[in-house]
Amino acid sequence: MKKITLKITINGRKHTLRIDPNLRLLDLLRDELRLTGTKEGCGIGECGACTVILDGRAVNACLILAGQCNGREVVTIEGLTGKDDLHPLQQAFIDHGAVQCGFCTPGMIMSAAALLDQNPTPTEEDIREAISGNLCRCTGYTQIVEAIQAVADDN
């Protein structure tokens, strides 16, 4: 398969890459760039494990071709702070026991981060709506909502 050129900014770093045209954004992140914080659960847009922020919006990286992201900006869980310290959402997830197996956690946090960027003081309903595409099989969601609410309250 003939490769195409992709110019993309990921976690603030500009990349020019040669990729297979049918590569999904999720595969680019995990397999080519080794940003394995973004997970693959269902691969069909239903679980949210692959959530990243594309031009400010939380999206399913399994549903997008990398080629759709030419000239665009992606933030993954690895790029949330840009530093070694934890993002307030990551700390709040720990503090509220919102992580059990942890598979959904990166996606949950990316959805929450996109929400708080757009709406720093969301209601509980806003939070539940924002994470409505992120499935968690362990926690029952209560602690996750509390963790996000705690960060919002600090805002």
């Binding site: 847009g45 999206v59 959805s111 595409g133």
Partner: peptide, 9 residues
């Protein structure tokens, strides 16, 4: 329609 994530796409 779908979830928040889906609706963004």
């Amino acid at each position: 329609i779908g979830s928040t994530l889906n609706r963004n796409l």
